[in-house]
Design a protein around this nucleic acid. Structure first.
Lengths: 247, 247
DNA sequence: TCAAAAGTGTTCGCTCTACACCCATGT
DNA sequence: ACATGGGTGTAGAGCGAACACTTTTGA
């Protein structure tokens, strides 16, 4: 009797599944892409990785890195795939930012896109330049992109400005070893302000998340600064909320 | 000659469009829904508006308010439509929170969903209870929902906790006229802490965004408090960043 | 008169801010 | 020797945190 019940239960479950599947098949559907805003930092400037638009309609214009989501992968996986394909890196900071669902954002018909933001050390990877050009562009110099990618970029930039004041993300953009000057330059570039050097250094000293690696800068035309690395382990362990770096 | 050039240009543009359309038609596509987490506040508790799951597979379980995005509407419009249909309100605080793209989140096949969070005054609307039950549930009491809606709810709750400390959103959850006690209860409910009454009042007094309406609470079994309303106009004008209410 | 919440100020400690001089290195 | 950025400390202001008593109303 128990068996019968179980079987009946299983059968009905199967039936429910079948019904659900039949229902979903009636749904309107839309292509979904993932677009990655990939930030880097070099020559004291915030950089963005762009590719030539592959759609002829936008010929000559630059574009974010984006691809269609594949049927078997979830959103994060799609974003990692795009990063991996283009930069060869897979241990990269990545976060979903916002979804853009305007009807006319793609000239060929409706395509929904989920925007991700990624931060990486610009020297730590090899760009995979295949058929399309892939280049780092100074964020400040970007005025126009294909699709609605400029809007997506601006959203991600605002997100980054806010985020970097609440979490120590900046280190993802720097080499393993960096000077405090480089770190400050990074913050100044992203926040688009000048910061007081002594207060900045005090701030980071008080966080106690920088490890003095006992080395110095080289090849600088002035007194070399100490090099530090970020204590990722310690940061993971401490659950200290970073709400407000408060420059 | 100019005309010819223009015509050629137009023609080629049309062709580009046609090509783009042909391309998009080859894309895999996915049904997209919008799910709304609708928060209210009543009886000193944070509430969430839920409906009985309409999918038989989840029979008996509660569900967020969600519907498929229609072909002609963008995401925000879909979210407003859902709100309007169910609550009759259209001047409501609403914000996109996160997109969920897990492969198995719908038993009938892949359905992507964009989660929105809405805040409304629980007394200001008439629920449209049609075929499904529509009820306010205490947030704290919700342990299970259909689909991945519990996960979505939790994300939206975290979002709300953070957001309410950076922007004066709370007023959307209160009646037009409210006492400082009600306001504090609201913050305490959302942040799940106790706050110091004097500091709380000082904080809001110093923001200078509350208008004393010259009335008092009635029907309270103790000394009645003054009633205030929130100065939405003044807030809109002042661009003061609210980063950090810092309780 | 009692219960329950309203209303109100002050002190302390911490953190942010502003600010200037000497040091080490390369040219 | 000079130019360039590295490295450091302190005083003042402002803000958040802690904390207790009197007042008003309804029961």
């Amino acid at each position: 009797m128990k068996k019968t019940n179980t079987n009946q239960h299983l059968k009905s479950k199967e039936e429910l599944l079948k019904n659900a599947q039949a229902l979903v098949e009636t749904y309107d559907s839309v292509p979904v892409s993932v677009d990655c805003v990939i930030f880097g930092f070099d020559e004291n400037e915030l950089k963005v990785l762009l590719i030539r638009a592959d759609l002829e309609y936008f010929k000559g214009m630059w574009s974010l890195l984006g691809e269609l989501m594949l049927p078997h992968e979830n959103l994060d996986e799609a974003a990692y795939r795009i990063l991996k394909e283009r930069t060869g890196m897979d241990d990269v900071y990545l976060d979903q930012v916002k979804t853009f669902g305007g009807i006319h954002r793609h000239p060929g018909g409706r395509v929904l896109t989920v925007a991700y933001c990624s931060l990486l050390n610009i020297n730590h990877h090899q760009l995979k330049i295949t058929d399309h050009e892939l280049h780092w562009h100074s964020f400040q110099s970007i005025t126009e992109l294909s699709f609605d990618h400029k809007e997506i970029l601006d959203e991600c930039y605002k997100w980054l400005q806010k985020r970097i004041q609440e979490h120590p993300l900046g280190f993802n953009l720097l080499p393993d070893k960096f000077s405090l000057r480089e770190l400050q330059n990074l913050y100044e570039a992203i926040l688009n302000t000048k910061l007081d050097r002594r207060n900045f250094r005090k701030k980071f000293a008080s966080m106690d998340l920088l490890i003095d690696v006992g080395e110095m800068e080289a090849d600088v035309p002035h007194r070399p600064g100490k090099l530090y690395k970020f204590d990722f382990d310690k940061y993971e362990k401490s659950n200290r909320k970073w709400i407000g770096i408060d420059f």
